[in-house]
């Protein structure tokens, strides 16, 4: 037992561990950042999983055809945004219930991605290159962690910093938060509530699409139907976990990335723990964390944007 514990501890403090955690966390961080912005504007889009898997399928297809990671990533973003546009049209344009629409989006995305990806299963592409910087990457320990990642990882950090600056340091960000906290007042002040929400939802879709595209473009060099495996749902939980704050989102995403990695590596140690127990760990962790977070905040969940998930019908 002690021996096993030592092995696990050894794993945690290895460079490899940190590298793997970064790759496992990046899709979560990307998808959750987009959803955070959408939710801050007051829209609860439960279709993250559907947008992600579409981003994965379209991103892979495009990358395979064009043999370019960048084209693949762009197509992933577009696919996610297109899915989000359907959602925006229904929930904002037609004032449909957001929960049900988000579920429909996930079902549709799972099916469509299977159709699109069917022709590409089993094919391989060149994975996204790791950007090695001369000298810096060669630094001991820190070098490979800080300066040896692929472009997605750097982008995910740029994105979350950008979102933080936007939300808290710009006027538009303030308006977006105002729309999310009280759409009636924002509307009365003359802000275009639906337009702002639509942009936020499209942004969220683009991020989810990119997060999905990351999986076949950088995580594994091939596409499997259903390869997002519930990451979209975990991203949704992360936004709650982070109590809608960008800084905490990074911490949350990396915590979950670590749990995912532990699941894989503990299996390799042969401790006699059934693999299914380890596989269900990230999901159980999500439930536990949600309970803990919600508990400390009281039943009202005061950190949530006040108008989250409430349908807005102008002039009523």
């Amino acid at each position: 037992m002690l021996d096993a514990l030592g092995q696990i501890l050894g794993l945690i403090f290895s460079v490899n561990f940190i590298l793997t955690v970064i790759t496992a966390s990046t899709p979560l961080l990307l998808a959750a950042s987009g959803e955070l912005v959408a939710e801050r504007s007051g829209v609860l889009n439960l279709g993250v999983e559907g947008m992600m898997i579409m981003g994965a399928a379209c991103g892979f297809a495009a990358a395979y055809v064009s043999d370019s990671t960048i084209v693949g990533a762009l197509c992933g973003i577009l696919a996610g945004a297109a899915m989000a546009a359907i959602f925006a049209f229904l929930t904002l344009g037609l004032a449909v219930n957001q929960v049900a629409t988000g579920l429909a989006l996930t079902i549709l995305g799972t099916g469509l991605s299977g159709l699109i990806g069917a022709g590409f299963v089993g094919m391989r592409i060149t994975p996204a290159p790791q950007l090695y910087l001369p000298v810096l990457t060669g630094l001991p320990v820190v070098g490979r962690i800080l300066f040896g990642q692929d472009a997605f990882v750097y982008f995910s950090f740029a994105l979350i910093i950008g979102i933080w600056l936007f939300l808290y340091r710009t006027r538009s960000g303030l308006i977006l938060r105002a729309v999310g906290d009280n759409h009636v007042s924002a509307h009365a002040l003359g802000y275009p509530v639906l337009k702002i929400r639509m942009l936020a939802v499209l942004f969220g879709g683009g991020c989810a699409g990119l997060a999905g595209a990351f999986l076949p473009l950088a995580y594994t060099p091939f596409f499997i139907p259903g390869m997002t495996a519930g990451r979209g749902w975990i991203a949704l939980a992360l936004v709650v976990f982070a109590s809608w704050r960008p800084g905490r989102l990074v911490a949350g995403a990396y915590l979950f990335g670590a749990v995912t990695f532990l699941q894989l590596s503990v299996q390799g140690l042969g401790l006699g723990i059934p693999p299914q127990v380890m596989s269900s760990l990230p999901y159980l962790a999500t439930v536990v964390v949600l309970v803990l977070i919600s508990r400390t905040r009281g039943a009202s969940g005061s950190a949530a944007p006040a108008s989250l998930g409430v349908v807005f019908v102008p002039d009523r």
């Binding site: 359907i86 229904l90 004032a95 989006l105 549709l108 099916g111 469509l112 299977g114 159709l115 139907p225």
Partner: peptide
């Protein structure tokens, strides 16, 4: 492909919700 059934179900749910609205 069997996935078409899911696409079908997703689209159906969209239309139902839209019609309700």
């Amino acid at each position: 492909p069997l996935d078409l059934t899911k696409v079908f179900q997703g689209i159906l749910l969209f239309y139902v919700l839209a019609c309700d609205s």
